[in-house]
Computed example of a mutant assay.
Amino acid sequence: MAYAAGIVRDAIIDFLTQHQREASTSEITHAVSRLIGPVASSSVRSYLNLNTPGLFTRVARGHYRLTLTGETALSGDFALAHAGDARLIHADCFDWLAQQQENRFQAVVTDPPYSLLEYSPTHTAKLRAGKGGIWRLPPSFDGRQRAPLPRFTVLNAADRENLWLFFARLAHSLHRVIVPGANVVVASNPLLCHLVASAMSSSGLELRGYLVRQVMTMRGGDRPKNAHNEFNMVSVMPRSQWEPWVLLRKPLEGRAQDNLRRWHTGGFRRPATDKPFGDLIRSHPTPAGEKRIAPHPSLKPQGFMRQLVRAVLPLAQGEVLDPFMGAGSTLAAANAVGYRSVGVEIDADFYQMAKQSVQRLSALKLKNE
């Protein structure tokens, strides 16, 4: 059977990327035939030999691997650490993504910064010193010390434009390194989720809706500032009881079933055969015990993250990427459900925190598990 130019080559790359080690010509031929249909071993050998020493490296007679694969491709010039089946990279994610090969990851789950300045060195220094910076310090109305929260309501028109450009750039960078049908799930908030959806869908990703994390937060519900007695029956904006996560997808190759066979993704994994994955997940604020393990200001609870991360690989095959790793809650959840994952973090302190916290978070036993 004749295939369009590049189809056999791409199938070989897909298999060796998933395989994560060298393979014999017969193994590669068998895998490619399963992905795209019957292929002659001579055709596979011609691709392997013609591209050597470019895409493929001959490591022994009749055995090949990807030239850029595994940890060399992942780390490049950046620091690399391990935590179970998770690999942690200390890098600017945009620089790091630019060095990764195409069609590398099967899903993305991430919680990016939103005011853009909030995680800059200047403002993280203020945060760590307890001086706030552009972070909102919740009142200690019950006598408890509360962690600062990022301020979403102070963004002006220029900030929102920069945020749109940031998410458009992120989508463009991710589009190249994820496989067709890969889910991209991005944490957001009710005031800015429309902007995230618009920016990322403008760069080639398909908007697939929103996932709702049902949780009571500290945001909203306040009376007018400096006039709370005069307008004691007024809330300036509703008290937020949900957190939106924007759902996007790299366009499929062919039908959903075709994409699932070739790329192992193109949908969400069901909790059970008789129960579809739903877009509402009941949650709670991150427990104090998890915050003690990983005192990151935006740490998400494992009870929620494990449900979400489990769902993004429909066949439980592949690797999950978090380009804004923070303290590593996505990677910890991936470890807990048995997935491989990669996280990237630019902040040195948060990177060190993740190195210590990922395995401890993944080892937690939750009530409903």
Rank of each mutant, 00 (worst) to 15 (best):
A197C: 03
A129Y: 05
K365V: 11
V185E: 04
A5M: 01
D111V: 13
A272S: 15
P38H: 06
P121F: 12
A272Y: 08
T110Q: 05
R262I: 09
H175W: 09
G289H: 03
H296Y: 15
R65V: 04
L116M: 10
C93D: 00
N229M: 08
L207K: 01
G303V: 00
G130H: 10
P285H: 08
L308K: 01
G254L: 09
W242M: 02
D111A: 12
A199S: 00
Q359A: 10
S26T: 13
I36Y: 13
V59W: 10
H296F: 13
V309P: 04
K131M: 13
L80R: 06
L116G: 09
F152H: 15
L16E: 04
S202E: 12
S283N: 00
S201Y: 09
G221K: 04
L248S: 13
W164L: 09
L192V: 08
F231D: 01
F141I: 12
L165M: 02
L315G: 05
A11G: 09
G132K: 09
A256D: 02
P148D: 01
N183M: 14
T110R: 04
A187L: 07
V236F: 01
A348P: 02
L280T: 12
Q257D: 11
Q145L: 11
L361K: 03
Q317R: 15
L68A: 05
V39A: 01
A147M: 15
H82E: 14
K275S: 15
L174A: 08
G266W: 04
L88W: 03
P251I: 13
S42Q: 13
N156T: 06
L163F: 14
L260A: 15
P180G: 07
N232Q: 14
R104A: 12
